[in-house]
Simulated scan of single mutants.
Amino acid sequence: MTPYGTFLFFFIIAILLAPTVILGLYGKRFKTYNILVTLIFLVLIFSVNLRETNALIFFTFWQVILIKGYIAYRKKANSGNIFCLAVILSILPLLLSKLSSYLFIENLWGFLGISYLTFKGVQMIMETRDGLIKNQVPLIHLLYFILFFPTLSSGPIDRYRRFEKDLNEDIPMEEYKLFLYKGMNKIFLGFLYKFIIGYLIHHYIMIRLGHFSHGTIQHHLFYMYTYSLYLFFDFAGYSAFAIGVSYIMGVKTPENFNQPFISRNMKDFWNRWHMTLSFWFRDYVFMRFVFWMTKKKWIKNRQIVSNLGYILLFLLMGFWHGLEIQYILYGVYHAFLMVAYNSFEQFNKKHHWWPQNKMTHIASVIITFHFVCFGFYIFSGHFLHKGV
């Protein structure tokens, strides 16, 4: 069963979360019941594929052993080599899953949501290294965090310390009413985005590509803009579902989108688009790289260091999506845009070539929108299809 893919999935959610809502409206705790609900949904989602079920079980045990083992180790020592080894081992199942087809071996490690579950495991190891997670994490909390079903397949990516805070807080009756109200609003917004607007764009606009001759500029431009809009409404709709169900379960899963098509520049865009992913890469890749380079003093120019950080970040993001050429080019494209904008920003601070006013703001939004859409066109791989 695909999460949020059918109305049957929502019907089951409504049935299983009815006790959660009733308990919440009476000001009662419902954590234990929600853990049971998560287990039931894991069975429903993975029971149709035994290989994926086994992969999920192996992955979960693997991450739990690594996380709890590293937390125990970190209390006694702080070797950089052990930290790097723990991170590599945490990422290993994802790497094997991504590379299996290229190594001509059977993919025994992949399952729905492995990327997002890996992000959770890696960030816990990194935050333990930083001293943000100091004490052993209760096993049931760790399992619930990793396997939390509303965000299982495609995020948003939560942070353990924020998630644990929600688990430990009592939710008074009046506050839960606000949770329920926001959760239902998010679910209805998800239906509007994914099943109405996204569906209409895909089935009644994108199929009209035949009105333009294949291979013409008009054909590709039409596809570029419609695909960009479809991608937003489909993904933002999914995220709204995940956030809405989380709120009903008493968990304030972070937002994933914030009007990305009104971004003023590419930095602003990545603060608005798939925010939990971009913030994860910012905090655990970019910031660590900049800190490491600054500490080593190999390159003293801060702009060069930040540009190298952007290149590393977006190349990794491209490879994370897949090893297909369109994903690699997508990463290279955004790395180039971020380096170009970073250089322009530094230049403009000195020379004030681009003033800040209403007209330049509007122009910036329009220019950024076109750059963003072209990036999504690359991401789609449409240009690789013969006869299009």
Rank of each mutant, 00 (worst) to 15 (best):
T2M: 10
I15F: 05
I15E: 01
L16P: 06
L23R: 06
G24D: 00
L25P: 07
G27Y: 06
G27I: 05
F30S: 04
Y33L: 09
N34V: 03
I35M: 11
V43F: 13
V48C: 02
E52G: 03
N54V: 08
F61D: 08
L66A: 11
K68Y: 14
K68E: 14
Y70V: 09
A72N: 12
R74L: 06
K76F: 14
S79T: 02
I82C: 02
V87R: 06
I88E: 00
L92R: 07
L95H: 07
L96I: 06
K98G: 00
S100I: 06
S101Q: 13
G110H: 04
S115I: 07
Y116R: 10
F119L: 08
M126P: 10
E127H: 03
T128F: 13
L132N: 06
F149K: 08
P150S: 05
S154K: 05
G155I: 00
Y160F: 15
R161W: 00
F163A: 01
K165D: 02
L167W: 04
I171A: 01
Y176W: 14
L180D: 13
F195R: 05
I196S: 15
Y199A: 13
I201P: 11
H211L: 14
S213G: 10
S213A: 12
Y223M: 15
Y225G: 10
Y227W: 12
S228H: 15
Y230N: 05
F233Y: 12
E255H: 10
N258T: 09
N258A: 08
R264V: 07
R272W: 06
M275A: 04
F279D: 11
D283L: 10
K295F: 08
K300G: 01
N301R: 13
Q303E: 04
I304V: 15
V305N: 06
S306G: 00
N307F: 04
N307H: 09
Y310A: 01
Y310H: 02
L313G: 00
M317V: 09
H321Q: 03
H321V: 03
E324K: 13
Y327G: 11
F336V: 04
S343Q: 08
E345Y: 12
K350L: 04
H352K: 14
H361C: 13
C373K: 11
F376R: 14
Y377L: 15
I378S: 13
I378N: 12
